[in-house]
Each structure stands twice: as structure tokens, then as C-alpha cells.
């Protein structure tokens, strides 16, 4: 588990981009954080790293946007969903671990479905800090993203990563 601080929206997005550069078909990324924490911003970065050139906007209204990058990118927003039974009836599983990469906002709402084979990205507001600064935690509960996380330490060295005990 790794943690860093991004100083502004741009850094949050470029961290997302670095993650996106190293994702491939079958990967699932779940982003969690309060309203306004920057989930869409982070995912915009991931999508750009995956070679998506279309504009990436919040899918709150229609639940899912699909983009084409190096492989299909499925961008979900579970904001409107209450229970995991509701999520199950929607058939989100059909888009997970498949021919594309699935990116989910409000991923905690689908945790029983996602766990453990997903990269969990937590975005936290910081107290007493600039409004756009965030504490970002990358967690790999299923052990699928070891190389990606190790790579972050060197590629994004400027973020001064901290290793957290699992």
C-alpha cells in the first residue's frame, strides 16, 4: 500500500495518467473519496494514459460511459446506487475483468463484487491545506498490481511516496 500527497488537480490527474499508462485489458480500478475529492479528475488522467482522446465526463447520470483507448475503457459512477444488490441487478460484473479496463467511481458501493482483484485508489481531503491538495492511497488487495505500484515509486518519485503497512 502506497500513499502520497498531490498538490493540485494537475498532479492528481497526472498520477492517474501514470496509472493509466500501465493498465491493460482485464484490470479493474476502484476510486473512492467524498464528493468533490477528485474521482472524475483522477479517472480523466487514467483514461488519457490509456490513450483515450475523447472528453471524459462524469457518468453520474447514465451510470457508465464507454471510451476507446488501447482497449475498451468502461467508466462507471455508482453515486446513485444504494446497495450492492442493486448493483448486481445492473450487471456491472459483465464489464469487469474482461476485454477492457473498468474504472469505477464510488467503488465502495460495489466492494463485495470487486474485492480483492482491483486497484483501490482512495482520495482524501487534507485538513489545513490548499483546497486542491489530496492524500492519495493506492492499495492492491489482490496482489495483482505489484509491478505497477513499484513502478510508481520511481516514475513519480517527486510525489514522495510513503509505504504503508498492509
Amino acid at each position: 500500500m502506497l500513499e502520497c500527497i498531490t498538490k493540485n488537480e494537475e498532479e492528481t490527474k497526472s498520477l492517474g495518467r501514470q496509472v493509466g499508462l500501465h493498465l491493460s485489458a482485464g484490470h479493474v480500478v476502484g476510486v473512492t473519496g467524498e464528493l468533490g475529492a477528485g474521482k472524475t479528475v483522477f479517472i480523466q488522467g487514467v483514461a488519457s494514459g490509456m490513450g483515450v482522446s475523447e472528453p471524459v465526463t462524469s457518468p453520474s447520470f447514465v451510470l457508465m460511459h464507454q471510451y476507446s483507448g488501447r482497449c475498451p475503457v468502461y467508466h462507471f459512477d455508482l453515486y446513485r446506487l444504494e446497495s450492492s444488490s442493486e448493483i448486481q441487478t445492473l450487471g456491472i460484473e459483465e464489464y469487469l475483468w474482461t476485454d477492457g479496463v473498468a474504472l469505477l467511481e464510488w467503488a465502495e458501493r460495489a466492494k463485495p463484487i470487486l474485492f480483492p482483484n482491483f486497484l483501490h485508489v482512495q482520495l482524501h481531503y487534507l485538513d489545513e491545506a490548499p483546497a486542491d491538495s489530496r492524500r492519495v492511497v493506492l492499495e492492491d488487495p489482490g496482489g495483482r498490481f505489484g509491478r505497477l505500484l513499484e513502478g510508481m515509486l520511481t516514475r513519480c518519485e517527486y510525489l514522495r511516496w510513503i509505504r504503508l503497512p498492509i
Partner: peptide, 13 residues
């Protein structure tokens, strides 16, 4: 509008 939303959340915090 997401930056504005964030600014409101930050103000509330």
C-alpha cells in the same frame, strides 16, 4: 462544474 462543487465541499469542511 466539478471545481465549483469541490469549492463548496471545502467551504463546508
Amino acid at each position: 462544474f466539478s471545481g465549483l462543487k469541490t469549492a463548496v465541499m471545502y467551504f463546508l469542511k
